[in-house]
């Protein structure tokens, strides 16, 4: 496999959550999301009740993937920041390491300059946490000590039950 499964534990999740909340407040954002490059929502801060977060995550990842494709055609490794400006809302998308996408949605109560500045600061903190997550899950996987693994005893019946 070219990449590792992303396994998130409670402790790291809480740290990520805190970091996102901080960014949300400091950047005066409407909502802040973390999405993995495969299109899965990892965490969010702010009021996302009116947003279809699953679709947003998948489309953001598609957007990053397409932009990455364009970058490679031009001989760039990747474009690390995307920015879309709307009439009311704007969206700032940036990469954290090679795996995670940070999405900040903001309106005229904030500004692109402020968002960029705060994103830059949070990116370092978040990247460090994700590095820890990767090494932690790899060690656990190698030592075969995944706590409380829901898969170890998965049966055909469990799977059949999903399709009832």
């Amino acid at each position: 496999m070219p990449d590792f499964d992303l396994v998130m534990y409670e402790a790291e999740f809480r740290r990520i959550d805190e970091e996102l909340k901080k960014l949300y407040h400091q950047a005066n954002a409407k909502v802040v999301f973390l999405v993995d490059k495969n299109g899965q929502l990892v965490a969010s801060a702010g009021d996302s009740s009116e947003i279809d977060t699953t679709s947003l995550a998948s489309l953001t990842a598609g957007n990053i993937a397409a932009t990455g494709g364009i970058a490679r055609l031009l001989g760039e490794k990747e474009f690390s920041i995307l920015f879309h400006e709307g009439e009311k809302d704007n969206i700032h998308i940036s990469l954290i390491g090679h795996r995670i996408i940070l999405v900040v949605i903001f309106d005229n109560r904030s500004s692109i300059g402020l968002v960029r500045l705060r994103v830059k600061k949070s990116t370092e903190a978040l990247a460090a946490i994700f590095n820890e997550i990767t090494s932690k899950s790899e060690t656990k996987k190698q030592e075969k000590v995944i706590d409380d693994s829901p898969f170890a005893e998965i049966t055909d019946e469990d799977i059949d039950n999903l399709f009832r």
Partner: peptide, 15 residues
């Protein structure tokens, strides 16, 4: 490359 979240107790798989 699945995403297993022990915090929200979710497994995400891409098909």
């Amino acid at each position: 490359m699945s995403f297993i979240n022990y915090s929200s107790r979710e497994i995400n798989c891409k098909i």
